[in-house]
């Protein structure tokens, strides 16, 4: 793991391009609720982007006793092994930062996996507020 997703809230304008890129890439839809990156507007000029922190001692991985959440050593991201998941949904409330989402439609957990090393949010951010380096 030599790269990480770096957020810079000072540069963020809250335009939502990262959310759209994420929804289109991971959710296959332009519906922004499918996004795995979120923007919180604190004031008109202050925006903060939050996404999965890929914790070293991840709570989601601790909650999943079946091994359906596995760290990809190449990217450092925790990925969902969909075929191993038994859909107990415990990973969602376990995440202390709220970045695990249990999708009721596909009945599978969804989380940021850094697009397997090429995060779309960073690629499309027009203001350089998200960097993958």
């Amino acid at each position: 793991m030599d790269k990480m997703l770096i957020v810079n809230p000072a540069k963020c304008t809250g335009c939502g391009t990262c959310k759209l890129a994420c929804s289109m890439t991971k959710g296959h839809s332009d519906h922004l609720t499918r996004s795995r990156i979120h923007i919180f507007t604190i004031s008109e000029v202050e925006h903060v982007q939050v996404s999965c922190l890929q914790c070293v001692e991840a709570a989601c991985m601790k909650a999943c006793t079946i091994g359906a959440l596995v760290r990809n050593e190449a990217t450092g991201a925790i990925e969902v092994q969909e075929d191993r998941c038994i859909r107990c949904g415990l990973c969602e409330p376990a995440c202390p930062f709220g970045h695990m989402h249990f999708d009721t439609r596909s009945k599978l957990p969804q989380k940021c996996d850094l697009c397997f090393g090429e995060p779309a949010c960073a690629r499309f951010c027009p203001h350089g507020a998200l960097e993958y380096s």
Binding site: H38, I42, K62, E92, G98, H99
Partner: peptide
């Protein structure tokens, strides 16, 4: 599961809000 009890106290949205603040 070996996790602190307060992890289960808030919904995902509120947890995200807290961390962003």
């Amino acid at each position: 599961r070996d996790l602190p009890e307060d992890y289960y106290a808030q919904c995902q949205e509120c947890k995200r809000k807290e961390i962003s603040l």
